[in-house]
Nucleic acid binder design. Structure first.
Lengths: 159, 159
DNA sequence: TATACTCGGATAAGAATAATCCGAGTATCA
DNA sequence: TGATACTCGGATTATTCTTATCCGAGTATA
């Protein structure tokens, strides 16, 4: 799993505090990460339609949908791609004892087992929304935490 | 997820057919994969205690435990390592609005969400054993499939 | 006792990730 | 209305991890 997922999730959570677009550079400064690279993750989120970009002087990124309708799985798929983590190379069809292609109607038992587990993983991620995460942050650090973030994000660049 | 997991699982399944040690080179030929690299995965399995190596002229690898007591999760952990796929870099403790370390008693909500999903994934893999996979192969390809593999593995090197 | 076969760890090549840069476009402000 | 300053966007490079390979240590065999 690429580390960009963590950054993307944190960005989505803090974006729930601001209805105005937030520049990528400001998000990078808030999290103390490379702005040049965070831009890449934000572009992935934008391509997936989770956030939308606003160009121009007071532009930036803002959530496209309500936080309740953005699942953690949506973010993971946007950043890491929707493909399965386990890729079956059809080993059973290779070697001297290869299974005839006619007998390979479905996926091989090993791939089925791995994909079943991945489905459980995806179902768990699909059941958690960005709104849930924001609520958990409130529960952990108190409501003033995200309020402070909101003020910092929308405040004066001199900070 | 590294591709070696697929090879390791296939090797464990075919090893259920033979009580005698099977050389790594023979397993590689059966699956038509790089013998030099498959050796690396088998060594990982041996270090984890899932298989044991026998040196000498008629040596090779054999399962250490009964197939019913080796879970798919055991194999994945042996090859890919037991660490979590999602690593939390404690972003909340960085930047101008860093959360004080005193407030960070537990994992942050984002890490909790990701790790909950990983637990679901591990639970699914822990519930499937190598014996289950071998039974599924029988169901898919018929009992003669693994019997043929057994004969080929233990048979004359001339093939 | 010599031999041939086995595993085991240390060593290079390749791919994917992580990080960076500069050009295209738009709302702002004079 | 026009110049400007700030924004995003894709193409380019460095680094880490995975993949692949090789040769040396050890043991049952004959």
């Amino acid at each position: 799993m690429s580390g960009g997922v963590e950054w993307a999730l944190h960005c989505c959570v803090v974006l729930t505090t601001s209805s105005r677009p937030v520049p990528a550079a400001r998000l990078a400064e808030l999290h103390d990460v490379s702005g040049s690279y965070l831009a890449k993750q934000l572009q992935s989120l934008a391509r997936a339609g989770l956030i939308h970009s606003v160009q121009g002087k007071s532009g930036g990124y803002a959530l496209t949908r309500a936080p309740e309708s953005i699942s953690v799985l949506d973010v993971v798929h946007a950043v890491d791609g929707p493909g399965p983590a386990f890729v079956c190379t059809e080993i059973r069809q290779r070697g001297p004892l290869a299974t005839p292609p006619g007998d390979c109607t479905g996926a091989c038992p090993i791939a089925r087992a791995m994909w079943t587990a991945e489905t459980a993983w995806r179902d768990a991620l699909a059941g958690i929304t960005i709104a849930d995460l924001a609520r958990d942050v409130d529960a952990d650090s108190g409501p003033e935490a995200l309020a402070t973030v909101r003020a910092w994000l929308t405040g004066d660049p001199a900070g």
